[in-house]
Amino acid sequence: MPKHFLRAAALAAIALLLPAQAPPPAAAPSAGEPIVIGRSYLVPSAILHGNRRVNVYLPPHYGAAGRRFPILFLLDGGAEEDFHHITGLAAISAAYGTTDEMIVIGIEGVDRRHDLTAPSTSPEDLKAAPTSGGAAAYRRFLVEELKPWVAAHYGGAGRTALIGESLAGLFVVETALREPGAFDDYIAISPSLWWNRQALSREAEADLAKGGLEGRRLWLAMANESSLYPEMQQGMDRLLAALRAAPPRGLTWSHTPFPGETHATIYHPAAMAAIRALYALPPARPGG
């Protein structure tokens, strides 16, 4: 065998024994461009004795002459909570012309078991949520401080809505029943109506009889909660019975069950359904 073949074979054998060389380092990425979907602010609150972080999403045509937009006040609306999720649903629905564009105001949670619950006399509730009972003050913050702040910064708008799920859904229902003038529309998804031995649903008939719901809309949804959270379903059933027994004058309400969803999966499909139901645009005319 020629010597140059022997030499090449030897070199190849040595190469197999050596560790593979690392590839050359990749070029450092450029700075790129940020993807911005909103802005975050600290809103001072005398009622809550401190600042609360509020995240704001503005639709693409915000600022266009003559345009007014619904404002969706989102409980649990922090960047690490539901702000990105709900703004995404609102944006994609409007982008395809299914619904109106809307402003989303996400209120970041601090101690949601405090802020979203009324006082409870249940020992189980107090053990699970020892800081509970701050809903009245939190509601005052939303109505007396945050809504004026939004109006001052973003001008006149269309209908206002309050949306929440679980304990936030409980807060939404309580607001609709006991301070119906706070918002125009209420979206409560799998509300935790088990709270305080289902007191809110037990008192719903009396609350509804007080009136004040003219021109309001209440959109309710419930996952398949019967097996894990039967008290939650019982509370919803009692609330629906009260609405059916004496429909409040001027209130438009609906209930949409989601039997294929759990408490952990209902929020996205139900929120999309609510946005489509309440803020639907008329169908486009053929050829338009």
Score class of each variant (00 low, 15 high):
100 D>C: 12
12 A>W: 10
272 M>C: 08
210 K>G: 00
272 M>R: 12
114 H>F: 00
77 G>R: 04
157 A>Y: 14
34 P>G: 09
171 F>M: 15
156 G>C: 04
66 G>Y: 13
268 H>W: 12
216 R>H: 14
121 T>E: 15
220 L>D: 02
8 A>C: 05
46 A>L: 14
103 I>E: 03
81 E>S: 12
194 W>I: 06
113 R>Y: 12
46 A>V: 13
274 A>R: 09
243 L>M: 11
41 Y>S: 06
101 E>A: 02
114 H>V: 04
179 E>C: 11
53 R>C: 09
137 A>H: 14
246 A>P: 01
132 S>A: 15
214 E>F: 00
17 L>H: 02
252 T>W: 08
151 A>D: 15
206 A>V: 05
263 H>G: 12
251 L>N: 06
46 A>C: 02
189 I>F: 14
78 G>S: 06
51 N>C: 06
122 S>W: 06
167 L>H: 06
140 R>W: 00
215 G>I: 08
217 R>E: 06
104 V>L: 04
82 D>P: 03
137 A>K: 15
176 A>F: 13
105 I>H: 01
240 L>S: 07
118 A>I: 05
262 T>N: 07
93 S>R: 00
55 N>I: 04
199 A>V: 04
43 V>K: 05
92 I>G: 05
80 E>C: 09
276 R>S: 03
199 A>E: 15
157 A>G: 15
161 A>W: 07
223 A>K: 00
10 A>F: 15
226 S>C: 01
150 V>A: 01
287 G>K: 00
171 F>R: 00
271 A>L: 01
40 S>G: 10
213 L>K: 09
84 H>P: 01
75 L>M: 15
282 P>M: 03
279 Y>K: 01
62 Y>H: 12
262 T>I: 03
195 W>Y: 12
15 A>H: 08
242 A>T: 03
166 S>Q: 09
155 G>A: 05
218 L>V: 04
167 L>I: 08
263 H>K: 07
175 T>V: 03
124 E>S: 14
225 E>W: 09
31 A>S: 10
265 T>Y: 12
197 R>T: 14
201 S>K: 08
266 I>W: 07
99 T>W: 09
53 R>I: 05
196 N>E: 13
221 A>H: 08
273 A>V: 05
170 L>S: 08
223 A>M: 06
284 A>G: 11
170 L>I: 06
148 P>H: 10
41 Y>V: 11
145 E>N: 00
16 L>F: 14
280 A>F: 13
204 A>S: 09
164 G>E: 10
126 L>E: 02
76 D>M: 10
279 Y>V: 07
163 I>E: 01
157 A>T: 15
73 F>H: 14
241 A>E: 12
110 V>A: 13
28 A>C: 03
230 P>D: 06
56 V>K: 07
67 R>F: 11
93 S>D: 13
103 I>A: 07
176 A>T: 02
151 A>R: 14
26 A>L: 15
25 P>R: 10
12 A>H: 08
